[in-house]
Design a binder for these strands. Structure first.
Length: 507
RNA sequence: GGCCCCGUAGCUCAAUGGUAGAGCAGUUGACUCUUAAUCAAUUGGUUGAAGGUUCGAGUCCUUCCGGGGUCACCA
């Protein structure tokens, strides 16, 4: 049983609904007529205007009532559909006094209607539908949380609109219904994934789907969500990455695979983190990380071109240009330049921690040398990388799945792409030597079970690798973060339709 | 999880510790070219919840619930 209490406004609207029904008027019909979208009606009407001898345009439109202006026996209203908005012109002469009164008495802002009539231009010059018949196709009981619309230079400006972030996220349907710019964010998001697919498909990649429920999680350092299969009495993890399954497919003979899907990480929620988020990973046989860097630049340029029409965009006040060559700087050089520490002089965690402490930098307790370097990058380097850049050659102990550099045992062939001061993607020359991989897993086994960096040993993955895995370059990118960039949104929740929020009492 | 801030009408927001208000939405009325229409009148509140201090609490204190920011964490 619902415990919902109707508000006064809702009770009023329910009463209108009841009265409509008493008059035999169905407020939620199963079938509707529609000859044009609002956009098509406007386009065709303007074309007919241009052709002097064209017949008047008859149209049947559907949409949600977004404004009503009553002028006695004349009513102006705007309807909005998925394509735009259009003014309805309701006049007693055309519609009939009785129908006009029905509209006045029972129709509200937010209702969906079907209106039939002839397109014309009002004295004020707005292309409008002179309504000959109108009917309710879905009555809105709850008023939409927006007061009024205004059109300024062709743009709809909504006044006193829904702004409370909590309500916007919990009731995204209402947010979308009243905030057109929010609808636009998710169109850009869809265009982004579409163009990434287009790029990868055109480069001979195979799109695949791998398990979300995994008996062993891996491919990243994060706490997993744990669940259980009842019948198999088996503990399962929601995946934290796709990596290990995608690389198994290279063993199987596919040269290029990718997956776009959801990862789950049981970590804190922040401006840049949601417990479930969308990731793109691809693996490219016979490529190394340098090749993947080039490919990444190409891919993001293509995507920006498709989605934004060019390589330049503005993000939170910074002008970002994906078009130029991305600077490539080693982690060691970046730490030297931005943090003033020469990593070569500090070959172990203890000496590096001391050097950092001397500069009054934050030193994470019990951190490995790799973890300390990562901290330096996060604190001192990352925020400075506004224009698209690659950092490369990462510490071995924080990269258990990456191939070692041929000339430095402490370093692996790994890069991260940074844009606007945050990490966008992460890639490496994938480790394909099963003996080295086993050694890496065993290094991890010395760690505490709850250490974030501990990577579980995956026997089946090792078995796959023993069959022979071609050398390959792998890549992962957060789609949510890319969408944040493309839509100039500072918070990941703005690019996730239904972001995670704490459950409310009673829900 | 720590710290800081916030929660008032459907929406956006006011209110020195001293009568809880405005605009829009809603309701009633006027109006046949409006477009944030206009004009007149009007309804609507357990101020997130529970305690406490006080003659008196939206305001101060405590706890809880929810949200935002930030730090930690997030390879």
């Amino acid at each position: 049983m619902s415990e919902y209490q109707y508000s006064e406004i809702e009770r009023n609207r329910l009463s209108k609904l009841e009265q409509l029904r008493q008059q035999g008027l169905e407020a939620f019909p199963a079938r509707v007529e529609r000859s044009h979208t609002t956009q098509a009606a406007l386009t065709e009407f303007e074309a007919a205007e241009a052709a002097a001898d064209a017949a008047p345009l008859q149209a049947t439109l559907v949409g949600r009532i977004r404004s009503i202006r009553q002028m006695g026996k004349l009513i102006f209203a705007h309807i909005e559909d998925g394509y735009g908005r259009l003014q309805l012109f309701l006049r007693a002469d055309t519609l009939g006094a009785e129908q006009l009164q029905t509209f006045r008495d029972y129709y509200d802002l937010g209702d969906f209607v079907e209106a039939r009539g002839e397109m014309f231009r009002t004295k004020a010059g707005e292309a409008s539908l002179n309504v000959a018949a109108i009917r309710m196709i879905a009555k809105a009981i709850t008023p939409l949380p927006a007061a009024k619309d205004e059109v300024v230079d062709g743009e709809v400006v909504r006044h006193a609109t829904l702004a409370d972030p909590e309500t916007r996220y919990r009731q995204r349907y209402a947010d979308l219904a009243v905030n057109p710019q929010v609808r636009e964010v998710f169109r850009i998001r869809a265009a982004t994934t579409r163009s990434l697919r287009e790029f990868l498909d055109s480069h001979d990649f195979l799109e695949v789907e791998t398990p979300v429920l995994q008996p062993v999680y891996g491919g990243a350092a994060a706490r997993p969500f744990v669940t259980e299969h009842n019948q198999l009495k088996q503990e399962l993890y929601l995946r934290i990455s796709f990596e290990l399954y995608l690389k198994r497919l290279l063993v199987g003979g596919y040269e290029r695979v990718y997956e776009i899907g959801r990862d789950f990480r049981n970590e804190g929620v922040s401006r840049k983190h949601n417990p479930e988020f969308t990731m793109l990973e691809f693996y490219m046989a016979y490529a190394d990380y340098q090749r993947v860097m080039e490919f990444t630049e190409e891919m993001l340029r293509f995507t920006a071109q498709q989605v934004l029409g060019g390589a330049k965009f503005s993000y939170q006040g910074n002008e970002i240009d994906l078009g130029r060559d991305w600077p490539r700087i080693t982690v060691a050089d970046a730490v030297q330049e931005f943090a003033g520490i020469d990593l070569a002089q500090y070959p172990d965690a203890k000496s590096l921690a001391a050097a950092m402490a001397a500069k009054e930098y934050y030193v994470a307790p019990k951190a490995s040398r790799g973890k300390l370097i990562e901290g330096l990058v996060g604190d001192h380097v990352e925020p400075r990388l506004i224009q698209p850049s690659f950092l490369y050659d990462y510490p071995r102990e924080i990269s258990p799945l990456a191939k070692s550099s041929p000339d430095d045992a402490q370093t692996v062939e790994r890069f991260e792409g940074y844009v606007a001061g945050f990490e966008l993607c992460n890639a490496f020359s994938e480790l394909n030597d099963p003996l080295d991989q086993l050694a890496r897993f065993e290094e991890m086994s010395g760690m505490d079970a709850d250490d974030e960096d501990r990577h579980p040993l995956d026997e089946d993955y090792l078995r796959a690798m023993r069959y022979g895995m071609p050398p390959n370059g792998g890549f992962g990118m957060g789609i949510d973060r890319l969408t944040m960039l493309f839509t100039d949104q500072p918070n990941i929740r703005e690019v996730i339709l239904f972001p995670h929020l704490r459950k409310r009492e009673g829900e």
